[in-house]
Each structure stands twice: as C-alpha cells, then as structure tokens.
C-alpha cells in the first residue's frame, strides 16, 4: 500500500488531502446535526426546562437535580430508569441470542463451498426483507395478528389451548417475547449478511488444509472460522447492542406508549419520548439521554473486552495478512 504513495510523492503531487476533502461533508453534517445536539443535551441536563401547557418554564440552572430526580422516582422499590434499562436489556438479549445463533448458522451454510447452496440470492433477499419494512409498520402488522380479535387468538381458542380471553399484550412474558421476536425477525438477515462478509474474508486455504487433515465441519467452525470472525462478530454485537439500547418504535407501538403491562415493555428511549413529547422536558430527558450515552459506552466496552482477548488486540495492531 505504501509503495504507490511514495512514487507519487516523488513527482511532488500529493493526493492525500483529497481524501479528507471528500469526507469533509460527513464531518460537517455530523458536527451540526449530531455533535452540537449532543453537547446541547448534555448542557440541558443541568437546567430546569420544560413547558407547562404552552408556557415555557426555565431554562433555569438546576445543578444535578434532574439526575437526582431520575433516581428518586421509583417503581417496585427501584428507580424507574434502572427498571427501564432492565426492560431494554431483557428484550434486546431475548432477541439477540436467536438473532446471532441463526445468523451464524446461515452465514456458515451460505459460505460453505461443500454445501454450495443453490438460489442463495433468493434466500438472502428473503431473510433481509423484514429489515426493509418500517419497524412501526411491522409492529402494527404483528399487533393486529396477536390482538384479541386477531387470527392467533382465535387459533389458540379454536385449538382449546386457551379457554378464556388471553391478551398477549397484557402478559409480561408474551408482550416482551413479541417485542424480542420482531427485533429478531427484523435484524437476523442483516446480521447474516455482515457475518457472511466476515467469513468470506477468511482465507479458505486454512479451511481446506484443516479438512484435509481430517477436521470435522464443527471443529473447523470452532477452531478456524469463529476465532478469525471475532473482529466482525464484535462489530455486529456492538452495533446490535447500541440498536438494542435505543429500542423504541416496536415496544412503543405494541404498548401504545404505555409500556404495558406494568411498565415491563417500557424502554429507556420510550421514557425519553414520554418526557419530551408533552411537557418538552428537555432537562429531565437530557439527563436521561446522558445516562443512556454512558450506559451504551460502558456496555460496548464490556462487549469489546469480552469478545476480543488482549493478545488478539496486539495481533490486530501488527497489521493484516
């Protein structure tokens, strides 16, 4: 990679700065639309600032009062933020486990030269399809399917599995499972594609050599594919985690914004929305957003440390193949 750059330098023309110029638009838009609001949010979180009806209250310096209130508003004896963070993580994990297991399996199958699956393009399109539908539209559809007047309920009644009315959205387990299920359905295709790209980046001669030495497919997967896939898998898990912490539209629509039942499907971002929508409570919503920011950062770090062992980090720094 270095060679051509050097030759060009000899001629006295550097194209290096063009790279920065071409990516500049991203940084400008990022600065205006992401960075500034982030800093603002951080600032707002120290102010008393909301609307009472149409009248603006504040902004008025409030110190850490917003943060204190977040932890003193309690449900079931624990601060609501902790409860909502728990809900968010439970629903993310319940969706992410099948999502990654199935995506790994499909990615290995699709890339296996021994299986050589036909019609791959078709399957890839089909599994990716749910991701193309708007999450809210998808949730509406699932809501209709599982509602008490919907087909699933009548199926359960007709097959005598339930004898009296059972509302899927008013039971903690079923409501959370439906949210997790929708997230799984929407994202496993995307993960499959990402992991496939990772697997295809692995030198197939390693796999062939192992096979010739008599390794079984399972051994090849655990000893060769998985370790070499780790960097990509880490990336996929972390993006999924961040998406999970930001979970909002699916549980919002299924519970009409109330986190039904018993606030067990109320996620952190739904709570931000609740504070922001009616009272425009930038103070409290800002404080919560700052907490979510640090929560995401901390969890991402944990995932990173867990998936990428220390010595492999060293290897990565040494450069590619």
């Amino acid at each position: 990679m270095e060679k051509p750059a050097k030759t060009k330098k000899k001629h006295g023309v550097s194209y290096a700065k063009w790279g920065y110029i071409f990516i500049l638009p991203f940084f400008i838009t990022y600065f205006i639309w992401s960075f500034v609001p982030q800093v603002l949010t951080f600032g707002y979180s120290f102010f008393k600032m909301y609307r009472s009806g149409l009248d603006q209250i504040g902004p008025e310096w409030n110190g850490i009062q917003n943060y204190v209130e977040l932890f003193t508003t309690k449900l079931d004896g624990i601060p609501t933020v902790v409860k909502y963070a728990g809900n968010t993580m439970i629903m993310w994990i319940a969706g992410a486990i099948p999502q990654f297991l199935i995506a790994l399996l499909l990615a290995v199958w699709f890339t296996s030269f021994r299986l050589n699956i036909k019609g791959q393009g078709f399957f890839k399109t089909v599994i990716y399809m749910p991701n193309l539908i708007m999450a809210s539209a998808f949730s509406m559809l699932i809501w209709t399917v599982f509602s008490v007047t919907g087909p699933v309920h009548s199926l359960f009644v007709n097959s005598n599995l339930i004898t009296e009315e059972f509302d899927f959205f008013f039971n903690k387990v079923s409501a959370r499972s439906i949210v997790a299920g929708i997230n799984f359905l929407m994202w496993f295709g995307n993960t499959t594609i990402v992991l496939m790209a990772g697997i295809m980046g692995i030198d197939q001669s390693l796999v062939e050599a192992a096979m010739i030495d008599g390794a079984s497919s399972i051994k090849v997967f655990f000893k060769i594919t998985l370790p070499l896939l780790m960097p990509i898998l880490t990336y996929a898990v972390i993006t999924s985690l961040i998406g999970g912490i930001n979970m909002y539209d699916v549980p919002f629509i299924l519970s009409k914004g109330y986190g039904t039942p018993d606030n067990t499907t109320m996620t952190l971002i739904m709570n931000v929305q609740q504070k922001l929508s009616t009272a425009k409570n930038y103070g409290s919503a800002g404080a919560l957003s700052v907490l979510i920011f640090f929560f995401s950062a901390a969890l991402s770090l944990v995932v990173f440390k867990f998936f990428v062992p220390h010595d492999s980090l060293k290897n990565m720094k040494k450069g590619g193949k």
Binding site: T73, L75, T80, Q274, K275, T278, A279, G283
Partner: peptide, 17 residues
C-alpha cells in the same frame, strides 16, 4: 394498588410540575 401506583408514576414522568 400497583395500577394506581403506575398511574401516578406515569403522571410524574409526563408532567414535571
């Protein structure tokens, strides 16, 4: 009791005043 507690929490979180 829980339903009423949830309602009160909902109001607290919706209307700060």
């Amino acid at each position: 009791e829980k339903a009423m507690e949830n309602f009160k929490t909902y109001i607290k979180e919706t209307y700060p005043e």
